[in-house]
Design a protein around this nucleic acid. Structure first.
Length: 599
RNA sequence: GAUCUCGUAGCUCAGUUGGAUAGAGCGACAGCCUUCUAAGCUGUAGGUCAUUGGUUCGAAUCCAAUCGGGAUCACCA
């Protein structure tokens, strides 16, 4: 009759019980996939429900016999967990014993790392953020950063050895564009001259180039050229291409310009990364990995896995995978995007010997990563199969895609500042933090604003695109980060106000149905984190944290802990509150935001 | 054109991988602050799950077609 802290949640244990019973009573092997265990709908009595349809078919028996049989065996063999059962239709509803739940609570409530898996040595590399050094970060990058950070934390929680990395796209055509623009129209100005963050400063020159190019192409089109022809004929584009070749040759002047401008950008990025709490175990630079990629292409060419066209460009034929031919090296010998990713994969494997390598990159690059994996397989790299693209949808505005050229980009720095300001206004209006000094208020506002922002971006399934309406500011009420924070702060205050030691016999306690629900919810935490990892989807954790917090608030709004009818119940509720606070804290940690003890 | 993807309440999103009468938040409306934090709680209204057909005990979920949005198919990254 004692609870064993196995972290094996009830839903799973019930499945295993049933597999066991069927093996002995029916002499048949079934697996967890042969039947379903659900949480029971509120209108029926019970906690978990086994759906019997598929089992009756498999066992060639009728529902009633099977239900009676299962029910009896459950009660006999697992009486410490199973209290009772009833059958409605083909749904076998099972109730969990109160003693099991109370034991669970009493053993685990003080376990601040409840549901955390022990280290098992499997290595995961998570690459995320991956900025371009030609423009500042925007809302889409924030989704990427928060996703990458969160998924790394979820892997850690599940016992993985995690190594985070960032690839900086610091070279290529787009970088040359902003360099050329600065060379032409910058008049030697620096970010401090215009009092701008470095990334914003450089980004402005990228936009400047884009509009100049657009104008030039429009003029050429008036002379009867198609858009594509115009782009090829464009003097600006030709200059950019020349600059790229010079860059790859290591031209001293170009390198100096490149280093200077990238330096400005990094300064700006560092500021933003620090704010949003993004860190990497290692930063890779495309400028340093692309040469290795070129070598791989040469290797593949030698081994006749790739082929060269008449103009000296190098390709691989992917038609047998249902894809097209793919360019690997341009005719002028310079490398393309995928070339550097080949080198990068090798570098990452040499540095970390990963089992799995996750790339957090937008879904517009699904094709790219499909191709990358195939090419690595063509090259017979041992790490090829571990490549996984964590593809996420774009963040769009109600009017459609964000476009930097049209000025419809939601800038990351601006948004962070705005969230902090709103949080501050709320805090002052509510008047709860009057005792705070200016610095504490600033810190709290930032913590709350960031939680709102992070939760907002993480609560949605990553693979779906999401719509952000700048007209309506991000909410601080309801299904939000601040709601989790609020609940946590309340619990802290409850515990704080009860210093008096309580001694009572726990066995006299009875759980209300809501408390039971809350405990069953907490019991599910290991399952949620496993699922979240299996799907590479932090939104499950966000939803979970909200559900737990919601249930806590719902019950304790009406049943005050400190006014409980007797000491035993008070003690039990304090323990439950503590347990909830740990769960919330761990969820928040996985989602990358802080929980203040007072707000 | 080809491939992929999405379509659920006025808006933003869930929906436990095929299970019972489809759920939250926001917004709207009605209540609740002399008792642990009202960034909260309780209630009401709001749905032909894009459409049509199929598969079966059972479909928002699987299959097909249609309509509608988006992405990719670059010597951009």
């Amino acid at each position: 009759m004692s609870y064993k802290p196995t972290h094996s949640y009830l839903k799973k244990r019930i499945s295993l019980f049933i597999i066991d019973i069927i093996a002995s009573a029916y002499n048949t092997i079934v697996t967890e996939k042969d039947f379903i265990v659900n949480t029971t709908k509120p209108e029926f009595t019970g906690d978990y429900t086994v759906v019997l349809f598929s089992l009756t078919k498999k066992l060639n028996t009728n529902i009633k016999d099977l239900a009676t049989n299962l029910g009896e065996h459950l009660l006999q063999n697992y009486s410490d967990v199973i209290a009772s059962h009833n059958l409605t239709g083909a749904f076998l509803n099972i109730s969990i014993t109160e003693s099991h739940l109370l034991n669970f609570l009493n053993v685990e409530y003080a376990n601040s790392t409840y549901s955390k898996k022990p280290f098992h040595g499997k290595k995961v590399m998570v690459e995320y953020s991956s900025p371009n050094t030609n423009k500042p970060l925007h809302l889409g990058h924030l989704r990427n950063n928060f996703l990458g950070y969160s998924i790394a934390e979820i892997y850690k929680w599940n016992g993985y050895d995690v190594f985070t990395s960032c690839i900086v796209n610091d070279r290529g055509m787009h970088i040359c564009k902003s360099m050329l623009a600065w060379q032409k129209w910058g008049n030697g100005k620096t970010p401090s001259d215009t009092n701008q963050k470095g990334d914003h400063f450089v980004g402005d020159y990228y936009v400047l180039f884009a509009s100049a190019l657009k104008q030039e192409i429009a003029e050429l089109q008036q002379h009867g050229l198609t858009e594509k022809e115009a782009e090829q004929k464009s003097l600006l584009m030709q200059e950019v291409q020349k600059m790229l070749v010079l860059w790859e040759q290591g031209d001293a002047g170009i390198m100096q310009l490149w280093n200077m401008m990238n330096g400005w950008v990094y300064e700006g990025f560092d500021f933003t990364y620090k704010k949003i709490g993004t860190t990497f175990d290692r930063t890779y630079y495309e400028s340093k990995t692309y040469l290795l990629g070129k070598k791989f292409v040469e290797d593949g060419l030698q081994e006749k896995k790739f082929f060269k066209k008449e103009d000296h460009s190098v390709w691989t034929d992917l038609t047998k995978y249902g894809l097209d031919e793919k360019l690997l090296l341009r005719k002028d010998g310079t490398s393309v995007y995928i070339t550097q990713d080949l080198g990068l994969a090798e570098n990452k494997f040499n540095d970390f010997a990963y089992n799995t390598s996750i790339y957090v990159v937008g879904d517009e690059q699904n094709y790219h990563f499909q191709v990358l994996k195939i090419i690595l397989q063509q090259l017979e790299k041992p790490y090829a199969n571990g490549v996984y693209h964590l593809s996420y949808g774009m963040v769009e505005l109600p009017s459609g895609k964000m476009k930097s050229r049209e000025g419809t980009v939601v800038d990351a720095d601006d948004l962070i500042a705005e969230m902090t300001t709103i949080a501050k206004q709320h805090s002052i209006e509510l008047g709860k933090i009057d005792a705070f000094n200016e610095e504490q208020l600033e810190r709290l506002s930032f913590t709350i604003g960031m939680a709102a922002l992070k939760f907002y971006l993480l609560r949605v399934d990553p693979k779906k695109k999401m719509i952000f309406n700048p007209e309506e500011s991000i909410d601080f009420h309801g299904f939000t980060g601040p709601f989790i924070q609020y609940t946590y702060a309340r619990i802290c205050s409850i515990i704080d106000k009860n210093n008096a030691p309580i001694t009572a016999d726990e066995n006299t306690v009875f759980l209300s149905s809501l408390e039971k629900e809350l405990l069953l919810e907490i019991d599910l935490m290991p399952h949620i984190f496993e699922q979240s990892l299996a799907e590479n989807n932090p939104s499950l954790v966000a939803v979970y944290a909200y559900t737990v917090a919601k249930k806590f608030n719902a019950f304790y709004a009406q049943h005050p802990i400190l006014q409980a009818e007797n000491e035993a119940i008070k003690k039990m509720r304090l323990r439950l509150a503590t347990f909830v606070s740990y769960v919330l804290k761990n969820c928040a940690h996985a989602l990358g935001f802080e929980l203040p003890e007072k707000m």
